[in-house]
């Protein structure tokens, strides 16, 4: 039996890495006596997968995971038991049995992020908005991507424009903190998953490089709001 699970990873839990989160769930399943299926072989591993793992430091209102069980337990019981055990910040929102043969990961196409960052060279809100629109109007946005091949680091130029669905400035959440200094909030829809993936941090870097707003990239607050799959004519929630 395959169970799809929707959960949050908020507040301090954003500092837990993907592998740490896997371990956290495995131990929680064990404490809660969830009849999780194990792989065969010399080193049995629980059958579970977290779709499109977040980067360390990114929080999320909506993450997805699939697990395989050896026997069916009611979804509500699962949610209740697990939420009693899980640490503050990680909460199961929903769980649903599916007949899917395909892994949950293959359904993921887009992520909606809210990003908050400091910009140290902004004239006013309109200029800020114009520079974001300006970026979107480009045919190409080239960034350098690093890849590790053994000990070697290979950099490659990639066009990320096709990976950006939209970027909007959230004016009500953008405030001037001092002369030309702004705490900026943007919302964006970025490609996620196996068919193309753009990390929000790369978008920020591109925004910094292609505009003159002078962004402090490494302290940005990044939050995933929602994950979507591509339907016939629109993007839709996974469950």
């Amino acid at each position: 039996m395959i169970l799809w699970i929707r959960f949050t990873k908020q507040n301090f839990m954003k500092y837990i890495s993907h592998l740490d989160l896997m371990r956290l769930f495995q131990r929680s399943f064990r404490r809660c006596n969830i009849p999780i299926k194990y792989s065969q072989g010399f080193n049995p591993q629980p059958k579970m997968a977290i779709a499109n793992p977040l980067a360390l430091g990114t929080e999320s209102f909506e993450e997805y995971m699939e697990i395989e069980l050896t026997q069916r337990i009611p979804e509500d019981d699962f949610i209740k038991t697990m939420n009693k055990d899980l640490p503050e910040g990680i909460k199961i929102l929903d769980a649903k049995y599916v007949d899917e043969k395909k892994s949950i990961t293959t359904y993921i196409d887009w992520s909606h992020y809210e990003i908050q960052f400091m910009a140290y060279n902004v004239a006013d809100l309109d200029t800020l908005e114009a520079s974001i629109t300006g970026l979107l109007e480009r045919d190409q946005i080239i960034i350098e991507r690093e890849r590790r091949k053994g000990n070697k680091v290979i950099t490659k130029n990639v066009d990320i424009r096709p990976l950006i669905g939209n970027i909007t400035l959230s004016k009500d959440k953008t405030v001037e903190t001092s002369e030309r200094e702004y705490l900026v909030t943007i919302n964006c829809l970025l490609k996620s998953g196996d068919r193309g993936n753009l990390k929000p941090i790369d978008l920020l870097k591109a925004l910094d490089k292609n505009t003159n707003m002078n962004i402090e990239v490494d302290t940005a607050d990044i939050r995933r709001i929602k994950i979507f799959t591509e339907g016939q004519n629109s993007i839709e929630p996974l469950m």
Partner: peptide
């Protein structure tokens, strides 16, 4: 919160573990 984004293994410094 600000400095945790800049350090290696930030979960060393947050507490909140089970038990």
């Amino acid at each position: 919160e600000k400095i945790l984004k800049k350090v290696e293994k930030p979960a060393r410094y947050i507490g909140m573990e089970k038990n």
